[in-house]
Each structure stands twice: as structure tokens, then as C-alpha cells.
Amino acid sequence: MWRQWGRTALLSRPDPADHDVVYAIQDARFIAPDVKRFRVDAPRVARYWKPGQFVIVRATDDGERIPLTVVEADPGAGTIDLIVQGVGKTTRTLNALTSGEWIHDVAGPLGSPSEIDDFGTTIVVGGGVGTAIVYPTARALARAANRVIAIVGARTADLLILVEELEAVADSVIVTTDDGTAGRSGFVTDALAEVISVEHVDRVIAIGPLQMMAAISQLTRPEAIPTIVSLNPIMVDGTGMCGGCRVSVGGETKFACVDGPEFDAHGVDFDLLRMRNATYCDFERRRLEELGST
């Protein structure tokens, strides 16, 4: 039986011999410290995924369901590329997997796709692994005849991802690092402030840490530049069923998994989201300690 019920053994993986769909890992390599890019067989997702949508993954048969970013899909080959940052136990378990192994479940695509239109001059801002979410949207916007300026930032040069890929699709790319080891020294917000001070910008799409998205929202609000952020709250099913991912946008409660994940940044209550995202931090810490001690 490839579907297993009730209390099953810890860490059991499906046997490819009798598994209808095997989410086999074709390729896996670290693209930055603790950040791994996977190419995984997931024909359904590959066929229907659009930029902005995500998947929910279980690393093992006993694993937690976590939302992950899809950076690229190849419908012909039936594969998708996932980018995983190893921060918690589940993501570290995932990052220990390598080609020839498989991910237990990949469900998707989920969420609403990014709005793609000819907006004019569009700035995409990627902070840390948020760059992985923003890259496919940037590519789609470039294909839709937007003038795309990409701003990519990270703490230090090692942590920058997808810069070459963005250079291939965007009209210009600005790199920033907090410590000045690559590109300009400083934050993505500094670079963004500079661009909007010198030219007209029709739209900003910013994806990265909450603090970064909140700061960008502050920056573009007085200029009234339409600004989109992609939110990553805690969720279980990803289909609107649990309500764990509720966020407040424009004073209304929304479910990020079905109403988002992309929202108008100027309406988002970032403080509430930061608070809710810390719900299980004690549990997470304990689990990481367990992982370290084994």
C-alpha cells in the first residue's frame, strides 16, 4: 500500500515499486549555505502551476505539512524546482534529502497566481530566499512587456540567490548586501528608495522577510505606488480548511492560502502576522534541539 494509515512507522518512505506517484528528486544542490534547490517529479504541479503559486510538502510519512516556493516548472518533463531554506526541523530534514531519494508528498499548485499584466515599470524586490518566489513572477512580467527592475538583497554575498537568472530576464538588476560583500552596501529598501526618487514606478512586488516587506510598504505608501507582497503565514492544509493562515488586509480577515498569498502591501497588518508566525516557536526550538542531539 502506498498510502499508509493511522500510526505508521516514523520516517517510512513510500516504496517506488507500488507508489502511484513518486515525487522523486532528480537533482538537488545547495545554492547558498543552508539553501537547497531541488528538481522533483510532480507532473500535476508542473502542468498547472503559475508564478505566485506554492505547494505543500511533507518530507516523510509522518512529516509536517509545510508550504514551499516553486521557482520553476517544466510541464514537458513533469518536474518542478523547489528552493528550501533549512531553518526548522522539517526544512532541515528536507535539505538532507538528495537526488535518487524522494519527497513523500507534494500537493499543489495552491494559492492564487500572481497578477500578470503590462503595468509599465515594475520593480521586483527579493530579500533572501524571497528571491525564489519573486523570480518566476519577474520573468512572467518581463514576458508581458513590463520594464522590470530587480532589486536583490541578502545579509552577505554567499546568501544571494538567482542573481544570474534575474539578470537574464530583468532590464536591470541591483544587488545589495548588508555587509557590502557584494553589490551595494545596505538594504534593498535603500536601493528601492533611490530608484523611486529618480523615476516613475508603476508597481512594486516585494517578497522576503516580514520586516523587509513592512519597510517597503512604508516606503511606497506615501508615493502611492501599488505594492504587492507575498505572505507566508503558518498553514496546515493550504486549501482554506484550517484558517490558521488568516491575515488582516485592509481591516478584513483573509485566508492567505486561498485569498492570497499575494496581497496589497498597504493594507497588510504586518505586526499581527509577525505575532501569529511566532505561535509555535517554542515547539520549533525544542524540535531543533532534538534534531541536533540525534
Partner: peptide, 23 residues
Amino acid sequence: LPKFLDVAGENLVGVQSANEFLT
């Protein structure tokens, strides 16, 4: 799709839908 009560403070940490808790 779980219904909520639409009252103040409902998004505080620790207020959850039965769907989430049971799932």
C-alpha cells in the same frame, strides 16, 4: 471553510478554528 465569530481579538494567537485544532 471555517466560520469565525467576527469579534475583536479573534486573530490573537491561541484562537483557532475547530478544523485547525482537529486537523
